[in-house]
Design a protein around this nucleic acid. Structure first.
Lengths: 203, 203, 203, 203
DNA sequence: TATGAATGAGAATTCATTCAT
DNA sequence: GATGAATGAATTCTCATTCAT
């Protein structure tokens, strides 16, 4: 793993790209180290030299994606408003994944991974990525903006669930369909905001 | 397949349960027919006698789940009100999945399945199951109940996504937690109804 | 086996025909008892009831063919002349095999069988059938007909080898081709007779 | 296949010998890759590394034999006389098959192979090998040497059939027996030549 | 470092044979 | 006698991992 990090950035990217694509396309079990090596233009032996085992490579990729997600979202300049934060967060994620299509493939596949050999690790990474994806904590100043009688936590839950549902539907959707779904999701946020924020003041 | 259907119901259930569990746990590729046979208490040979191939078994399970879902939801006695229908549908699904926990596992895994050997079949079943899961079509008499300026279709989409998100979270949750989530989901429906229906008339 | 012989002739023929066809088409190893049973319209269990094992069935068929061959050739009414005997023998064989096409298939396949499980038995039957096929012993009265300086035994060897070679080529040949080859073989016999018999007296 | 060709000649021969023997002994279907690997002193995996599939190995062997036959016969230095050519060709083939006994076994088995999985390929190779085995075309200058009234083509056919018959008998014969048969075959050629060539001029 | 040949455990599938009904 | 469900050994093929070069 150290020896991999010592590689020139460019070569690292090639290998990572090839591996993300291979696992994204076929899942953990069916993706073969030979495929990864071939696509990366290195020998099978090197894959094991760099990552020890197939599992080691997979976990490295999970970690790599988590970092990339985190970095992208950390650019999220603390938007003042709760709903604005949700929208920006969503937009940033979509941005990132459009630039690194293999990463999107991989993440989708990772969310679907059921192979027990990596189940534990994947579970952990899912939890690590989740908050990074959300940045959805309701702060005190947000709370005040909600209409009386509306439970902000419940609204957050609704939004979170909707996000999961929308993501699920985006998985495997075409680019066109994805944009459409994104617009629809945006509309949902809008609707909820319109209905649960105190109208006069925060719209 | 015929020979399988001729089996006593009880034995069928054992085999189906074992297979749902195996595929649900490990996904199509890694689940092994030997595991299924062992868990079902039959010989490897019988798996092939009954279902021909591993793929045949998988497709049989898809079909089986579709039927079970359909039957459960067909009990849904045409509630008059749109939101009432959603609630009942959700309650019925949760009921079913509590009784057949392996089926839930399997369905989740099926929604995630990417193995090209069954991709086509799974795709088909997803589409067949989707409407059965919903029974959520908005009818004209429902449309009239929504506030002016509210797009009923968008609200349906929100509810659908929320349903998926909530189901996801319910997966693997304890019985207690599941009840809690169900209550929370119920609250969501309530909130949305309160906000999008014409208040005076339909609450 | 006794139980099989107790069957009505007609049923026996059905089973034998199906078995000859199955083994003839696919060879010993690849032909499956299930195929035989299906084609014969009986259950797998009966195949084993009648013949004990797959090998038992195969040997029964060998024996059956040997008998059939012997009976056909025994009709061969002791033609006086050596070459006339060869021709009649050939004609009778062709006759028989045209009437029982499955038997021909089977015999061809049997001559080709290399599976060690039946190699010994097949070897034995080949030797048993060979003389029956030939009826080619040169008798003293024949010997006198050959030109001086011609070794009758060597001529017999030539004819035998030609017979094997011609049979080999007939295997797998179409009906039309087979007739053509038969005519050609006939011409060979004629040529040899013309050249090795004392001309004036025996042509 | 490339990787196999890259092997040291000696190892290639070992593997080829083991495979020829296995298929020759048991036929395509029953010969097992495990046997081949064991006899060749390599692992099961390597068989597939080298040849991809069992069928790939079989076809490689067919091709290998075709080449070996072709090379051996190409040494046949264009003997002037037809019968001389036949004798030399026969001698060369016997030479080859004495050196590579497994090849003989394999070729016999191949000529008998009926397994549909390789039927097409075998058919093709049979046709390719046939002419290589013959080198027996009668040329115009040969034709003139035959007695009037003798059909040279029919004589060729006789010789060819006899060659097949003799080869069949040589298969599996002891070295001593083989020499005896060879001498007998030689005598046949001599006899035929004596009878069908114009005596005064060409003997 | 880098290679890819080599290994061997494991997976799907087939099928002769047995045996309860 | 008859059936065909049931068994499990054997077979082809795949692939992570190791290791000599």
């Amino acid at each position: 793993m150290d020896s991999f990090i010592a590689l020139p950035e460019e070569k690292q990217e090639t290998v990572i790209g090839a591996a993300l694509a291979a696992f994204g396309r076929n899942g953990y079990k069916k993706a073969s180290t030979a495929d990864v090596a071939l696509a990366a233009g290195i020998s099978k032996g090197m894959v094991f030299h760099y990552f020890g085992t197939k599992k080691g490579l997979y976990i490295f990729l999970c970690e790599h994606c988590r970092k990339a997600m985190g970095e992208a979202l950390s650019l999220n300049g603390k938007e003042a408003d709760f709903f604005a934060r949700i929208r920006q967060s969503t937009a940033l994620k979509v941005e990132l994944l459009k630039k690194k299509p293999h990463m999107l493939e991989f993440l989708k596949s990772m969310y679907q991974e059921t192979d027990p050999e990596v189940a534990l690790e994947v579970e952990g990474f899912r939890e690590l990525i989740a908050p990074a994806q959300q940045a959805l904590l309701i702060e005190d100043e947000d709370r005040a903006k909600f209409k009386d009688g509306v439970d902000p936590e419940q609204v957050l839950k609704m939004l979170t669930w909707m996000g999961v549902g929308a993501s699920e539907e985006m998985s495997g959707a075409s680019d066109e369909k994805m944009n459409e779904l994104l617009a629809s999701f945006d509309k949902c946020i809008e609707i909820i905001k319109n209905n649960f924020y105190k109208k006069e003041e925060y719209l």
